[in-house]
């Protein structure tokens, strides 16, 4: 039985990072550095988004020769639409997402 749970703050943070540059392919470690999420949080979210067709993944050959291909991710059109339809996060009342910087 599939459950439709509300999106967590962590998932929202990740989607926000991906939606900021929707056409750019992003690597797992880069997303960790950018969002402040731990690998144990990031990868399950990536997997769920991918399972729901909101994220696409592909192996990208690195620019540097001799290095192996890396998995890269970006939101699908459906994912981008889903993200844009999310209610906006209220930073005053909602918990601050992991690694997010609060602007003074």
């Amino acid at each position: 039985m599939k459950r439709n749970r509300p999106l967590s703050n962590e998932a929202r943070t990740l989607m926000q990072a991906l939606a900021d540059a929707p056409s750019r392919w992003r690597h797992g470690y880069d997303l960790i550095k950018e969002t402040g999420l731990k690998s144990g949080t990031l990868y399950p979210i990536l997997m769920r988004l991918s399972d729901r067709g909101l994220l696409e993944a592909q192996w990208l050959e690195p620019e540097q020769l001799g290095k192996p291909a890396r998995h890269a991710y970006r939101l699908t059109a459906k994912g981008l639409e889903f993200y844009r339809e999310l209610p906006t996060l209220n930073t005053e009342t909602d918990p601050i997402p992991y690694g997010a910087q609060v602007q003074a």
Partner: peptide
Amino acid sequence: MARERDEIADPGEALAFAVG
């Protein structure tokens, strides 16, 4: 995940990444 580990230079960070 295994390929990403090659990109992490800091040993502590690499270990935390692997545990996650």
